[in-house]
Amino acid sequence: MARAADLAGAAQLMLVDGVSYLDPEPAVFEAMLEGWTKQQRSRFLNWDSTIKPRLSLVRRFAEFTNQYPWQWQPAEVEAFIDHLRAKTPTFTVSSGRGYQNHLRLFCEYITDARYGWMNVCQERFGQVPVQILHEWNTVTHVSEYEGDPSRRPLTYDEIQALFDAADGRVEEIRKRGRKGALAAMRDSALLKSYYAYGMRRRESVQLDVADLRRNPKAPQYGRHGAMFVRYGKSSKGSPPKRRTIFTVP
């Protein structure tokens, strides 16, 4: 088993030995956040989409409670989620679960004995952090789909109207003799590609002409028988996944 000093984000690496902080509570809290950042970076998690939102939520929760992590109790997180639901009627179940998971991960980090934060808090403040989220105060994932039931997919007529509007924009720009027809044509083709191949935005914008492939089982499509996606949605800490989408009539 790795020693605490060997782990990225360990308390011994975040705090300077022998230093007496003038304001120790915020200093230790900031050291915890910095250590958690390093621990997540060592797992190759993305800064913008994963680490930064997690840090922001922890700070937001600390501001709501007006307490430091070694003072938190389950009642604080329950009051926080209840406050969010009351303040924001559109606060969804999936959002609540995401908030709870992020806070639980932070508590797992600071309560893991290998990182040494419990010893630091005990020595400096006479209190230790605890896990404040458990099965009785977290959302249970019982349904595969948790989206808004009022949302529905477009009908074929609505999709055709959308494509017609995109094509009409190209003709309108051409008739006015203005710049932008090529960009509008690009947008129209990209919109249709989204629909035809079911790609995400990031997958589409990273495409190249070379990503068009042949499909031996559909030779009539030539080099347009398949689309090779190189920047598929990745798992946390993993590189983008690759996949091939076949062209179908």
Rank of each mutant, 00 (worst) to 15 (best):
G232C: 04
T37L: 05
E34A: 15
A226Y: 06
F61Y: 10
T247I: 04
L103V: 04
L22D: 11
A181V: 00
C107R: 08
D208Q: 14
P24R: 13
E108C: 12
D164T: 15
S193L: 12
A10K: 04
R200S: 05
R186H: 09
K38Q: 15
T90L: 01
M32V: 06
E123K: 13
L133H: 09
A184E: 03
N101V: 15
K217A: 13
A8L: 09
W117F: 05
D187S: 08
R214N: 01
E135W: 00
D164H: 15
W36Y: 15
E78Y: 00
A8F: 06
S20W: 10
P74C: 05
R243G: 08
R200Y: 06
E76P: 00
L207N: 05
G225A: 04
Q39L: 12
G232M: 06
V205A: 04
L15E: 04
A75L: 11
C107K: 06
V205C: 07
H102E: 03
M227I: 10
M118E: 15
R176S: 06
S20M: 12
K241G: 01
G126F: 02
C121D: 02
P89I: 10
E34L: 08
N46K: 13
A218C: 02
Q131V: 14
V170M: 08
F80Q: 02
S143E: 11
K38W: 13
P129G: 00
V139W: 04
E30G: 02
Q100K: 00
K38P: 01
A8I: 00
F64A: 03
W47S: 03
W117K: 02
L22F: 07
R97L: 11
S94N: 13
S238N: 11
R114E: 14
L207R: 05
V28Q: 04
C107P: 05
K52L: 10
W72E: 01
G180F: 02
G18V: 02
G237Y: 03
A165E: 15
L55C: 04
T140A: 10
A181H: 02
S234H: 13
Q127A: 03
L105I: 10
G198H: 02
M185R: 14
L22Q: 13
R152N: 05
C107I: 10
S20C: 11
R124W: 05
P89W: 09
W47P: 00
Q71G: 01
I173K: 03
I159A: 11
V248H: 08
T244H: 07
A218K: 12
M14Y: 01
K38D: 15
Q67W: 03
L33W: 07
R104C: 10
Q160W: 12
Y195N: 01
Q73R: 14
K236C: 02
R186N: 12
L105Y: 06
L190M: 15
E123A: 12
A189Q: 08
N46D: 15
L84N: 06
P149V: 05
R176Y: 05
G225D: 04
Y109V: 09
G147W: 08
G116M: 04
G126K: 04
L15F: 06
Q206F: 05
N137Q: 06
Y156A: 14
M118Q: 15
E30I: 05
G180I: 00
D48H: 15
C107A: 15
P149Q: 02
